[in-house]
Nucleic acid binder design. Structure first.
Lengths: 243, 243
DNA sequence: GGGGTGTATGTCGTAGTTTAATGCAGGGTC
DNA sequence: GACCCTGCATTAAACTACGACATACACCCC
């Protein structure tokens, strides 16, 4: 298993989309109450539940998803070391989505009740938490815009790019290559595309040497070119049989 | 102009999706610094700007949107009395989306710097703000799921339903009918559909007597039936010419 | 009058879904 | 070893929901 660690950083150290100030890094570490290790495939939280604790991801990757009434699944976002998990249960009364680990995952556990205590004693904590949720809200806004306004090819390129940048900002992987331990079905559910179409789109991106994702590794030879595709690629015609 | 007021409630009084505790209602009213009235069509905030204040909507309606690099527009959500506007500018450094009034609008103005002061002196404020952003994040999650996994008909039905419920919870309009001062283009941009397709879908919903939206008024004869459509309507065939 | 804006409907092409079949690896059991 | 699972990537063929385009109509304002 490739090393996907963020040992020195109970929350994320820094991130392209969610840049933390140095002073904010360890704000939650002060009241860590334990650790949890889970196997790949474990469902850490289920929508509707009211867990008495929340977590930060220390190590490993996962995803947040929702199941709709019609049985379909929407992946809200991917989870990386440093992400905050399960705050909704405390804030809204119950979880509004589920969380699943796609690799072995190590989590830092916090008691839900501690949050309110610390909000009172340590106002800067509240500042930070507000900041985090506002940042996540911003990311969700970008996702809404992508699902609403971009074509399939753009969506796939956009997702790969965002994930790559996010991981690189966390110093995970190396220049041009990062681990990406998800199934194509996960990506499809995240982008609102069918598995088949996602697969074909990935194949086309691979052909064009823009991005190649397989065996849990994502390679992006030229980030800038992929960015162009993500933002404004004219939808290419599907590959047709030669005869 | 229909009365769309929330006079006694600087923040929202209550909301189906964002239910406030009584004690949390006036938390921002304590440091209100002025009022602002704008005409319909006014752009209150522009993405990229760094406004020195933020607002709550006292009266009127509007929308939050993003403009993409390809020129397309995504409406993030609709704004109603009680909504919080412009917090991002303070939290993330700059606005990540624009805000436009679609009716005459009265806003309550707050100084951005006051927020941090009050976070320090009044921790319960921080609790409330965190709660608000978490709630908005939850709503965005639902939007992502809708854009990603539902058909055009379901999306339109879903949006009309949500807007209706939200407005009724604010005691705006009356049983079965609420004001909805938006253009079809706004709805289309919110749902990631073309104007034409949105229009035709609305026509079909009207035909089926599920919802009729025109002249700035939305009428829903039977909420439950519309909800069924929103969640699981088998996509109906488009109307075909008889011959 | 003409121009701008918003709603309404029709035709047609295509970007997408659905369904299905195939291949291919790992893992258990005899 | 041969066997049969189960999970995931891949490719093909058929169908369709949706967008693009064109057009018409109503209204308002200069």
């Amino acid at each position: 298993m490739t090393s996907i660690s963020c040992e020195t950083c109970p929350l994320r150290r820094k991130s392209f989309f969610r840049p933390f100030e140095e002073e904010q890094i360890d704000f939650l570490a002060r009241f860590k109450s334990g650790e949890l290790t889970v196997d790949p495939g474990t469902h850490i939280l289920i929508e509707g539940s009211t867990a008495p604790q929340f977590y930060t991801v220390l190590d490993g990757m996962g995803l947040r998803y929702k199941t709709l009434e019609n049985g379909r699944r929407q992946v809200i976002n991917f989870l990386f070391p440093g992400d905050l998990v399960g705050l909704h249960a405390g804030l809204l009364g119950e979880m509004k989505h589920s969380v699943e680990a796609t690799t072995a995952m190590r989590l830092c556990v916090f008691k839900r009740d501690d949050l309110w205590t610390l909000f009172r004693n340590q106002p800067s904590l509240a500042y930070d938490v507000t900041w985090i949720t506002a940042t996540e809200e911003h990311f969700l806004g970008e996702t809404v815009a992508t699902l609403g306004q971009r074509t399939g090819t753009q969506r796939v390129a956009w997702a790969l790019l965002k994930v790559y940048q996010r991981l690189r900002a966390l110093d995970i992987g190396k220049e041009g290559e990062v681990p990406l331990p998800y199934r194509q079905q996960d990506m499809a559910d995240a982008l609102g595309l069918s598995l088949v179409h996602t697969n074909k789109t990935l194949a086309r991106l691979r052909e064009r040497q823009l991005a190649s994702w397989g065996e849990g590794r994502l390679r992006i030879p030229d980030v800038d070119t992929l960015a162009e595709v993500a933002l404004a690629d004219a939808a290419l015609p599907d590959m047709r049989p030669l005869l």
